[in-house]
Amino acid sequence: MPVVQFNPFASLVQPAFWHELTRLKVDVLRLSDDELTLAGSYSVGRSIRDRETGQDVALGCNLSLGADAFDKTPTVPALSVSARGVFKNFNTIDEFKAADKAALFNTVADEMWTSIIDHKDTSKLNRFLLITFADLKKYQYYYWFAFPAFVAKPSWEIADNWKAAEEHLSADQLTSVFNALHADTKPYFIVKLTDGAAQLHTINQADTLLTGSDSQSIIIGFLDPSASPENPGWPLRNLLAYLLALYPSHTTFLRVLCWRDSEIPSPGKSWKSRFGVVSHPAGNDAASKPTALGWERHPTTNKLSARMADLAPMMDPTRLADQAV
């Protein structure tokens, strides 16, 4: 059986975030390099039909940071969920380079694992880490994201590849999932199928639902930022780790719904959500902490390295004056 491959998160930092960081650095943080909490968000995976070739182009699996990332209660758009992150800014490029990145990463991963084992908490499953160095004079921002994910050994496998959700769920059932998500968007949920409808439950109820007699009608669902047909998004990875750690006896077959519809499709169009049955051999030592990985790779070199946003063309007053007419 093929191994389930997850589409990693790709960070998207809005220029407004760098502006806000600049303001914060100059007016509030000054030389402090304490860790702060960030709020990013991700939405359902989107694809666009190319008008000239008729092909569907899947857009990236993005986690974005905006100007309100430092706010305690950021607003998230419809069918998006907020993800909390740890933010650490360094004062010099040398500190940035010399930082013990593995230690920072492990701290976040440990915190995630503890929340799973001790609190059965799903709210930290999509944690991320962002380290930055802001060169305010040059309007250059060095940054590196990490999206920690726990590695399953052996890997999760999928029996019959990912299929369109329509093949397994009726349009009525999909519509009721959509309505429930639209009213209250959750990153992870459990769908309980009934005749012609579907009920949404929180993951905390997995205890009763997975062990119930009608486990065939239970589907694990998550808001999927990936639009690639073969690969579910990164959040599923930690959700599966969560289920494997807490309910190891029920992971031999898990029915998974990758939710990707931001609107009810108009007549003639199909639903974009995907469905698959994943499995993991039961009976391994689930309680021990698995290894975690997830540093973002540089988009052009595909190496593990930090990247830089150069906002001088849009922030430097002299450059702006040059192109003004």
Binding site: Q5, F6, A102, S155, W156, E230, N231, H298, L304
Partner: peptide, 20 residues
Amino acid sequence: DIPDMEEEGLEEGEDEATAV
């Protein structure tokens, strides 16, 4: 001016479950 910031040994090898 642009430092080479590739990190070695941060993560071991390729991860088979990461979509490339």
